[in-house]
């Protein structure tokens, strides 16, 4: 079996475990949003349009603790700004009419993007779309169950689900550390994120860490050393 086929299968299997986790978080988002006074329809519309967990949780926690609309918007926009570089990295996977590209791009979310990554800046279109659709369905149906009364499901933190996401990202990161440059950049990115975490609102560390990518500018094409 070729490595390509194996990684494809691993990815598809992985997204199911992640989708279950995402579903629970969608349910807890719906539950929290409703108990914070956001109503029933607004959380559903938000899950269907924003489709980005951390930003949505930030909005609920800020509005729920009498923070203003401006603070909620600023936090969520900062959190989701990472989707600009992320969407640039997968831009070539989307083709067709503008509306089709616009719609397809909405399936870009941390997990679908990470699972579709093949290292060296390459991404698999089928994996991204497939994983994105599964995750979107999980997020929206989870939200619906949550706003309808997800108390019975319990807190996803009690199930340890918040510890599952960093482990997933770590597993996907390991497969990305293909050469020395990637390793150094990853280390630098992690260091920037770690250094900023105690002083900045959530979201800022990730956006700032992307500066570590500038390491990729230095080497001129053609001088690439082959290492096996």
């Amino acid at each position: 079996m070729s490595e390509e086929v194996r990684s494809y299968r691993d990815g598809m299997r992985a997204v199911l475990a992640i989708a279950a986790t995402v579903w629970f978080f969608g349910a807890s988002f719906g539950l929290l949003a409703r108990s914070s006074g956001l109503g029933v329809v607004a959380p559903l519309v938000m899950s269907a349009t924003t489709f980005a967990g951390s930003a949505q949780f930030a909005v609920v926690s800020i509005l729920g603790t009498s923070g203003g609309a401006a603070a909620a918007i600023a936090a969520a926009v900062l959190l989701n700004a990472r989707y600009v570089p992320i969407s640039i990295s997968v831009a070539s996977l989307f083709h067709g009419r503008r509306l089709r590209r616009l719609a397809g791009a909405q399936l870009i979310v941390d997990e679908s993007w990470a699972i579709s990554s093949r290292g060296g800046g390459r991404f698999d279109r089928r994996l991204l779309i497939g994983a994105g659709l599964v995750l979107y369905a999980a997020w929206v149906t989870g939200t619906a169950v949550g706003v309808a009364g997800g108390e019975a499901l319990g807190d996803p933190r009690d199930l340890g689900l918040d510890g599952a996401f960093p482990a997933l990202f770590l597993a996907l990161l390991v497969s990305q550390l293909v050469d020395r440059k990637a390793q150094v950049a990853a280390l630098l990115g992690a260091a920037i994120a770690f250094a900023l975490t105690p002083f900045t609102p959530a979201g800022t560390p990730i956006v700032a860490a992307s500066a570590a990518c500038l390491l990729g500018l230095r080497r001129r094409p053609g001088l690439r050393r082959q290492r096996t």
Partner: peptide, 20 residues
């Protein structure tokens, strides 16, 4: 070259922020 490093860098940052 810069975009190729986005995945390892952002994943590493996500590991940190999602953990601590």
């Amino acid at each position: 070259g810069l975009v190729a490093l986005l995945a390892p860098v952002l994943l590493a940052a996500l590991v940190v922020t999602q953990t601590v």
